[in-house]
Write a protein that binds this DNA or RNA. Structure first.
Length: 612
RNA sequence: GACCCCGUAGCUCAGCCGGAUAGAGCACCAGAUUCCUAAUCUGGGGGCCGCGCGUUCGAAUCGCGCCGGGGUCACCA
């Protein structure tokens, strides 16, 4: 049996060539809407419903947006289930089961649908002919690294801002989760048909970079031979020694006794550049590479913040007022009422109006940040920020300000979401592991990646939904076994690759010539793989890359389970010595499952290893 | 006091735009390896989905109110 590719599909790279490219590296391909199984049958159901509207059974203008097509929870119900009749019955003034009969009547006429049954309150359960699954199996092969890629995003530009750690030191584990989630989300959105800009906002304008410059100046003096003590409040980390030495080599003692005004800007610029180099290296160990690094200092110098303020003032969203004392705890000792330009964030549910400038005339972080988001919105169709949960309190004000600024022309505000990632508690042997930047005993990201590996760190960070807190236990995470889902998924892939290698040694290669030899257990595996495209779309829509990690775990479990059938029943192994045709079909199946695992891991930025 | 997140099996957690008998791992019990990788698999017990009210044909899922845990509440970033 041989199946032709579905019409309209580029053959694409086949998994048989076994490229190790991650899907994200092929995003220049033209956006075609691949007709994968779920999208094909969803389209079929929609056409049936459209017919019912044309016939007058359903009222004109009926919206199908709540109609779903999904695998039934219980496999005994069938292959696919739709809620169409239940969702549409009420607005149409119909009995759900009566409507369901109208739908099933039309669906049953389809050759690939072997049964369409009405169940429970009005579910429609469909069973598909084996050929339908085999066609999907062939589609996986033909699409290869592009299987699961979606045109859902329609090429819309999405700006994802993540990490944005202050350029005052190396990255530590506190930054890790947001970095991984942001990067995986970027990969996911891109795979789902968006044009993603991965952006890092460099906070090189606040007081913290002046502190950095002073800290570096001390290291510079140290390099010149002076003995130094680092006072409270400056950065003590020895990662600044190197930059101090470089400055000493370049400038000699020129700035040793000079007033701060002579060297502050120079040292600050050099120090920030050095810190950003270090951070880029740290990110690279996680496989993260941003497209764009935007400087807060440059933004301020460009006058864009002033322009934003002027616009907000003209619309009465910024006014000069007196800041209230902080609520809920004793005000700071030096607190006194001061008149400042305030943004009316109380209009948007905030506790109090928020200053955009400090009393010394400098912009607050918030003041610059709103202009920064406005700037991002100029070149994107949608914005996503990944923030740590400790910044949750500032979400309302920035969303309010961005909504106001981006609808300045009277249009709809630019879609803008802030995704909060909750804290990660570091553990060691079941005990919390305390971290203090001031004491200098913080755990650097680079150390952890060095210890447990990029793939483990990335996958582990995605094994929990981002809005739940998580523990990261070093001892458990290095353990290469059951407890660790990364290895479980990678092992499934490695098993397949190993089998294909072993088969190739014996002259056995995958082939779609006899796919009809595949039975129920094999088709069940295909059914799981066939869910990949809709998992991608659902995860992208929800901006939740962790769903792909969970899906991959399920797919790997199915593979392992199928594999072990061969323990008791040798005729169920991939390689059946005396039956070359069956073996070729099984290998074709295995290669396809491996391809889906590889594509999914690729979206998450985790390597699909060849052997373990 | 306010805002944000969480509360599902003994433990750690999934559960999609509301859908059918609520799932997985760990732990516990019983099994599978002359055989393509046992880093795997098969079977078993175990549930007031924190509590209440509401919306709905239908609620773990949506809304409101409580309770419990975590986080935040600078002119910091």
């Amino acid at each position: 049996m041989s199946l032709p590719p579905r019409p309209g599909l580029d053959p694409g790279p086949s998994f048989l060539s076994c490229t190790r490219d991650l899907p994200r590296q092929t995003h220049e391909k033209p956006m075609t809407e691949p007709k994968t199984l779920y999208s094909a049958y969803a389209a079929l159901i929609e056409s049936v419903l459209t017919d019912l509207v044309a016939e007058g059974t359903l009222p004109a203008g009926t919206s199908f947006t709540n109609v779903t097509l999904e695998p039934p929870r219980d496999a005994s119900h069938g292959d696919l289930a739709t809620n169409a009749a239940m969702v549409l019955a009420k607005p149409a003034g119909l009995n759900p089961r009566a409507l369901a009969e109208g739908i099933t009547g039309k669906l049953a006429a389809h050759a690939s649908i072997t049964s369409a049954e009405i169940a429970g309150p009005g579910f429609i359960n469909l069973r598909l002919a084996p050929a339908a699954w085999l066609e999907e199996l062939a589609a996986i092969a033909h699409l290869g690294a592009d299987y699961g890629r979606s045109a859902m995003g329609e090429g819309r530009v999405v700006n994802v801002e993540y990490v944005s750690a202050n350029p005052t030191g190396p990255m530590h584990m506190g930054h890790c989760r947001g970095a991984v989630v942001g990067d995986a989300l970027s990969g996911l959105l891109e795979f789902a048909g968006h044009a993603v800009t991965k952006e890092y906002y460099v906070n090189d304008a606040g007081a913290q970079v002046d502190v950095l410059a002073r800290s570096v100046h001390l290291r510079y003096l140290e390099a010149l031979g002076q003995s130094i003590t680092i006072p409270e409040g400056l950065y003590p980390g020895d990662y600044l020694v190197d930059i101090g030495q470089k400055l000493a080599a370049e400038f000699g003692d020129k700035y040793a006794d000079a007033p701060e005004g002579d060297w502050l800007i120079l040292f600050r610029t050099r120090a920030v550049a050095a810190m950003m180099d270090m951070i880029r290296d740290d990110l690279a160990t996680l496989g993260i590479k941003h497209d764009l690094f935007s400087s807060e200092a440059e933004l301020q110098a460009s006058g864009k913040v002033d322009a934003a303020e002027a616009w907000l003032r003209a619309h009465d969203l910024v006014y000069d007022g007196v800041l209230e004392a902080p609520k809920g705890k004793a005000p700071p000792e030096d607190w006194e009422p001061v008149q400042l330009p305030l943004f009316r964030s109380t209009k948007f549910g905030d506790d109090q109006d928020r200053p955009i400038k400090k009393s010394n005339g400098a912009w607050t972080y918030f003041g610059a940040d709103l202009a920064y988001h406005f700037q991002k919105a100029q070149s994107a169709d949608a914005l996503v920020d990944i923030w740590g949960a400790d910044h949750a309190g500032t979400v309302k004000r920035i969303k309010a300000a961005v909504a106001a600024l981006t609808s300045a022309d009277g249009g709809a505000p630019k879609p803008f979401e802030v995704k909060l990632v909750q804290m990660v508690q570091l553990m060691k042997g079941g005990q919390p592991f305390k971290m203090s930047k001031r004491a200098g005993n913080f755990v650097t990201l680079a150390d952890v990646v060095d210890m447990v590996g990029k793939d483990v760190v990335r996958f582990t960070m995605l094994t929990r939904k981002p809005d739940a807190q998580m523990d990261f236990d070093f001892d458990k995470v290095v353990e290469a076994s059951k407890d660790n889902p990364v290895f479980y998924v990678q092992y499934a892939h490695a098993r397949i690759r190993s089998t294909l290698r072993k088969a190739a040694d014996r002259g056995l290669t995958p082939s779609d010539a006899a796919l009809d030899r595949l039975g129920t257990e094999e088709l069940a595996l295909v059914a799981r793989a066939a869910q990949f495209p809709r998992e991608i779309e659902a995860a992208a829509r929800a901006r939740e890359p962790h769903r792909i990690a969970f899906y991959l775990y399920d797919l790997a479990a199915d593979l392992h389970s199928y594999w072990n059938l061969g323990n008791d029943r040798p005729e169920k192994r991939f390689i059946v010595e005396q039956d070359a045709a069956l073996t070729a079909a099984r290998l074709f199946l295995g290669a396809a499952i491996g391809q889906v695992i590889r594509n999914g891991l690729g979206v998450l930025g985790v390597e699909a290893v060849e052997r373990m």
